[in-house]
């Protein structure tokens, strides 16, 4: 449906996106996530035709765009949903949604689909943030786009609204069967709504894959850190696999370890829920501090022989500061391994 190959976007002297490859299949939602300024919005603007690529190729359906062959935005059939919604302030909700739609039934359909019936004659300035976002999405979908591009669609909304609107948008896109690129800087959002996730850093795509894969098996330290909490723990490659200072359990895949190990050492990504804690007088760690999070508790623990780690456990496990605990790695999947960092 969409294929981006070796895309580079430049603003004057600054390179915003470089050597960017991504394809989106029919009906698929791909989230692009990364820190502010990583170039994710520039990718969208290039696909929408608001920015000209300096190099590379963008294929949308039958259209091919590169540095020499431009296709104006109005011929690309990309439905763009802006961070600031970009609703036409002088047009009512219905007129925004039906901007270039000749069939009033289509407008009615999308007004109903996004629950905007009671606002159809309202002007954009009178709407709440969530309503504006729904109008913006309805407007994009009503124009029968081949591809929807969402630029941080939830970042201007308050937290309570984000959670529910996230699913409303995803459901609407899936119901319409339109593929989408969804740009966000919120990792939770990226992991939960995307069929696939692309993680960007400094203009480059670091990793793209299914959410679980990116989270559990990040290919770079940046992706590992960006998608969730965790520490890199030194591990030793022995006969059967990799072992850490935490316990005797074997973590990580031997083949993977062999690829990255240097003089028998690797760094193991340990996320807080990969660890289990149990009160034990003769344990291997001591509790530094604990935080109650409702469903769970987060503890910082210091290994007697090793660094400080964080563990997220059930709220039923109540531990006191300074208490000695036994820590073990409880994850059933192989942990991600990296070549050892320079000490």
């Amino acid at each position: 449906m969409l294929a981006i190959r070796d895309l580079t976007v430049r603003y004057r002297d600054r390179v915003a996106v470089e050597h960017f490859d991504l394809s989106v299949d029919a009906g698929e939602i791909v989230t692009l996530v990364g820190p502010t300024g990583c170039g994710k919005s520039s990718v969208l603007r290039a696909v929408a035709g608001l920015e000209r690529p300096a190099a590379g190729q963008i294929r949308i359906g039958e259209l091919t765009i590169d540095a020499r062959h431009d296709v104006p935005p109005e011929r690309r059939r990309t439905g763009l949903v802006f961070q600031d919604f970009a609703l036409f302030p002088h047009l009512s909700v219905a007129r925004n949604i039906g901007f270039r739609v000749s069939d009033p039934a289509v407008v009615d359909h999308w007004i109903a689909a996004l629950g905007l019936e009671s606002h159809r004659d309202a002007m954009p300035a009178t709407l709440s943030g969530g309503q504006k976002q729904r109008v913006a999405l309805a407007r994009a979908l009503a124009h029968a786009p081949a591809l929807v591009l969402l630029d941080e669609p939830l970042s201007n909304l308050d937290a309570a609204l984000k959670a529910s609107l996230r699913w409303q948008i995803r459901d609407a896109l899936k119901a319409a069967g339109v593929p989408a690129i969804w740009v966000t800087h919120d990792q939770d959002e990226a992991l939960s709504v995307g069929d696939r996730v692309g993680v960007m850093n400094a203009g480059r795509l670091e990793q793209v894959g299914e959410p679980e894969q990116c989270y559990r098996a990040p290919t770079t330290r940046f992706v590992a850190r960006f998608l969730g909490d965790g520490v890199f723990l030194r591990g030793r490659l022995s006969d059967g696999g990799v072992q850490t200072v935490v316990d005797r359990s074997v973590v990580g895949d031997v083949d993977a370890a062999r690829r990255v190990a240097r003089s028998g050492e690797v760094d193991v990504l340990v996320r807080p829920h990969d660890l289990d804690l149990e009160p034990d007088e003769r344990g291997n760690a001591r509790v530094v501090w604990g935080r109650y999070e409702g469903e769970t508790r987060l503890y910082a623990i210091r290994l007697h022989e090793g660094p400080e780690l964080q563990a997220r456990v059930s709220h039923e496990v109540r531990l006191a500061e300074g208490q000695t605990v036994q820590t073990r790695i409880s994850a059933r999947h192989a942990l991600a391994l990296f070549g050892p960092a320079e000490a």
Binding site: A48, G49, L50, P72, P73, E74, R75, R76, R77, T78, G79, L80, F82, D84, A86, F88, P89, F99, R100, R139, A140, H143
Partner: peptide, 18 residues
Amino acid sequence: ARVDANLIGAARSLGAPP
């Protein structure tokens, strides 16, 4: 100043020529 560049971008991507 009230005419945000994004408004034009939105109109264009909805299929409106310049």
